[in-house]
Design a protein around this nucleic acid. Structure first.
Length: 413
DNA sequence: TCTGGGGTCCTGATGCTT
DNA sequence: TCTGAAGCATCAGGACCC
């Protein structure tokens, strides 16, 4: 199969049962056995179930208590996020060997834009096979499922079509027909509530949506209706964005036991505020707003937010704002979860200055940026910028998105 | 059977500015 | 000077994704 007639070649790569697979990779005693990664206590859900556990109808997001009942022989392993991040970095670096345009979606999946790569890697089948082999070799044996098509949406559905260790190729010309018999659950954005609404309208498959008049669907579902219609036609113009930035950061925790008094929540707010403020500083970022989140014992979510006069990464300011927002809560509780988030994230410090200068300098050229940096902030700023740049692949025509994205690749992986 | 944590985007209400 | 409409920003909540 050739991709010459494909307008774009988009790859979606999704690691198979990632957390559980990493645990099995690191501990041979777990291999071939049902493994559940999740909190060892009762108040939590399964993060990942190994494929050996799945015949027992155990899967992600299932309450751990239920999963243990359904699969009593399963070995429960507490998550080790540092290790998953480490392996994720290896996987993402492997993807980067195939394309400069890699958009990580989470630790275990990413989109790659491989348009024009046929000359280097061959047909879509060859691209998929080589990518899978490279990941397996780089990680010491982890498998990845790959979907390839002309849009992000179809590539994503395709990668989930055959799992684990699958490779599904959907030529753009066939994509609409390929989607048609699939259930509406594959529509990006159709969760349980929306699926129920669609079912009430007698819509069960993507083909049912594709056959409708889009204005009628829009009248019933608003912008979501139009969005679903476009997806049903296999139309999805979104580009692969390798320079996507976080818009918010949060830290939240479910309490071991519900708390009723706002005063009892204060230490947890302080702790969460410290965590997000530290993460902002670690990434040389500042935030222009603070939000708190509470979950009541009956699972109602309450939020309160406030804009700050000035962007900050100071723990004291984030904490003071969060504590003040807590005073605005008049719900009697009891509460089972407390969280603090910051939003309106922007760069601060050297990375931010570099970004601004790159934006302002003529054409964003690197030499102009460094000159301006030296002129305005002195040699230490140049050193800091050089440190940042030494961790990137050099490009003559550096633009701000590229700099921003690669300034801290370790955390972003 | 009893529901995590980290995110994004959308919607409707409300208040401010022009 | 007053009023109303339009546009915009912000807020709180909801739904969704991994």
């Amino acid at each position: 199969m050739t991709t010459r007639s494909w307008p774009r070649v988009i790859v979606h790569a999704d690691m198979d049962a990632f957390y559980a697979a990493v645990e099995q990779l690191d501990d041979p005693k777990l291999r071939g056995k049902p493994v559940l990664v999740g909190p060892p206590g009762q108040r939590g859900v399964v993060l990942t179930a190994s494929y050996e556990a799945r015949p027992a109808r155990v899967g992600s997001a299932m309450p751990m208590a239920i999963a243990r009942r359904r699969c009593p022989e399963a070995i429960v392993v507490p998550p080790r996020f540092d290790r998953y991040q480490e392996v994720s970095r290896i996987v993402m670096r492997t993807f980067a060997d195939f394309s400069p345009e890699v958009e990580p979606i989470s630790l275990d999946e990413a989109f790659l834009d491989m348009t024009g790569a046929e000359g280097i890697f061959g047909t879509p089948e060859a691209i998929g096979s080589k990518l899978k082999a490279a990941v397996q070799e780089a990680t010491g044996g982890l498998t990845v499922s790959v979907g390839i098509s002309g849009t992000k949406y179809v590539a994503k559905v395709a990668s989930g079509h055959v799992k684990p260790d699958g490779l599904t190729i959907v030529p753009p010309a066939l994509a609409k027909d390929w989607l048609a018999p699939q259930p509406v659950a594959v529509l990006w954005g159709a969760g349980p509530k929306t699926q129920a609404r669609l079912a009430a309208l007698g819509l069960e498959t993507v083909g049912d949506i594709a056959a409708l008049d889009p204005t009628g669907l829009e009248a019933k579902l608003g912008r979501t209706g139009r969005h679903f219609f476009e997806l049903s036609q296999a139309r999805d113009p979104r580009p692969v964005e390798s320079a996507r930035r976080a818009k918010s950061m949060s830290s939240e925790r479910t309490l071991a036991a519900d708390l009723s008094s706002v005063n009892e929540l204060r230490p947890y707010v302080r702790q969460a505020a410290d965590v997000v403020a530290r993460r902002l500083r670690d990434k040389s970022k500042a935030a222009s707003g603070v939000r708190i989140k509470l979950k009541t014992h009956d699972f109602r979510i309450l939020t309160r937010q406030r804009q700050l006069a000035e962007a900050t990464s100071a723990s004291e300011i984030v904490n003071a704002t969060a504590q003040s927002l807590l005073r605005e809560i008049d719900d009697p509780g009891p509460f089972r979860l407390i969280g603090v988030a910051v939003f309106g994230i922007q760069s601060s410090g050297a990375a931010g200055q570099l970004e601004l200068l790159a934006a302002r300098s003529e054409g964003g050229r690197l030499d102009a940026v460094l000159d301006a940096l030296h002129h305005r902030f002195g040699p230490r700023a140049v050193q800091r910028a050089s440190d940042l740049l030494s961790r990137t692949v050099f490009r003559e025509d550096v633009n701000l998105d590229y700099l921003e994205n690669d300034a801290s690749p370790d955390e972003d992986a």
